[in-house]
Design a protein around this nucleic acid. Structure first.
Length: 310
DNA sequence: ACCGGTCCCTGTTAGC
DNA sequence: TGCTAACAGGGACCGG
């Protein structure tokens, strides 16, 4: 499932492979995949067709391609993507891939003059939790670049409420620690709340908490600054390592921009490993239902707090 | 303003 | 064998 490292892998690939390309045409095969676009599927096609893709930027799990060559009166805008659970952005060349159409192809951009020579940018999404839209760019309140890979101090409007992620050079870590400690909830809920900090999903939250030896239900307002720092450091580490390895793939749904699967799943310590030995102490990994999904912990390294918040 | 619960969607797998 | 139910999960949205 794409979390920050996987999305960053895709962003980096798009930056190299499609920056400068002109969108010659757009096909929407599944209206639901552009559901968050204001003008609907037809408006989406109108706003993307003829525009030049000016780069690739990211904050947390949101990814955007600023659109150049607009009419002078139009506001600055970007093609915005969220991959959801199963979304992929595939840069494809029919000379290599043929005209074979993926069964879950939802949106296809026809490209001209891509630096890679690619003809298509395909949005493929089996479970359709992902989506594309065109959104206006709004200035960042702090005047810093909008995200990773963004030279502009602006973000798409639907991203404006999302917190800076842990790999963002403009993130103020001390402010983030205080924001976490001010919350009255459990630490995992805080990690997954994208308005606090973005990019952390269920997998990396579990891995980070295991590394930091903190239980997911630990109340944020009982955590000392060093402990919060330890959790955030662990999350930064685990995502950085995953990024180096090209992102996680444990169910073969996720592939990077070139269609390659990542291999980080081999390095997961607890996530998805019910009953297997904790790599630190060999205690069997436990699974709890939490937020209508699974949380994996080592019951010995991460004992359940007495006054925890689920 | 903050917090927590619900729902959206589809393919795979487990179980009867 | 064939059906149903559970499961994966980010985030918009809503009610308290």
């Amino acid at each position: 499932m794409p979390e920050l490292p996987e999305v960053e892998t895709v962003r980096d690939g798009l930056d190299r492979l499609v920056t400068g390309a002109v969108v010659r045409d757009v096909e929407v095969f599944r209206d639901y995949s552009v559901r968050r676009h204001d003008g609907g599927p037809a408006g989406f096609v109108d706003q993307v067709r003829g525009r030049r893709l000016a780069g690739a930027a990211r904050r947390g799990k949101y990814l955007w391609l600023p659109l150049a060559d607009a009419a002078p009166a139009d506001p600055a805008a970007a093609l915005l993507a969220h991959l959801g659970m199963s979304g992929q952005l595939l840069v494809r060349d029919p000379a290599v891939a043929g005209e074979w159409a993926h069964p879950h192809l939802r949106v296809r951009l026809h490209l001209l003059d891509a630096p890679s020579g690619a003809h298509y940018l395909d949005f493929v999404d089996q479970r359709t939790f992902g989506h594309l839209s065109v959104a206006d760019l709004v200035p960042t309140p702090d005047g810093a670049p909008g995200g990773f890979g963004s030279p502009l101090a602006a973000v798409p409007e639907p991203v404006a409420h999302i917190g800076r992620d842990l790999l963002d050079p403009a993130l103020d870590r001390d402010v983030l620690v205080e924001r976490v400690r001010c919350r009255r909830t459990g630490i995992k809920r805080a990690l997954l709340d994208q308005t606090v900090t973005s990019g952390v999903g269920n997998i990396y939250a579990d891995e980070a908490l295991w590394r930091a030896r903190v239980h997911f239900a630990r109340a944020t307002d009982t955590m000392t600054r060093p402990v919060v720092h330890r959790v955030l450091d662990a999350a930064t580490e685990v995502m950085t390592e995953a990024l180096v390895q090209g992102g996680t793939s444990f169910d073969a749904l996720y592939v990077n921009v070139n269609g390659e699967s990542g291999y980080f799943s081999r390095s997961l310590a607890v996530y998805g490993r019910l009953g297997e030995a904790c790599p630190r102490c060999a205690t069997p990994v436990r699974r709890d239902e939490f937020m209508n999904r699974s949380s994996f912990t080592c019951p010995r390294c991460q004992p359940r707090p007495r006054n925890g918040r689920w």
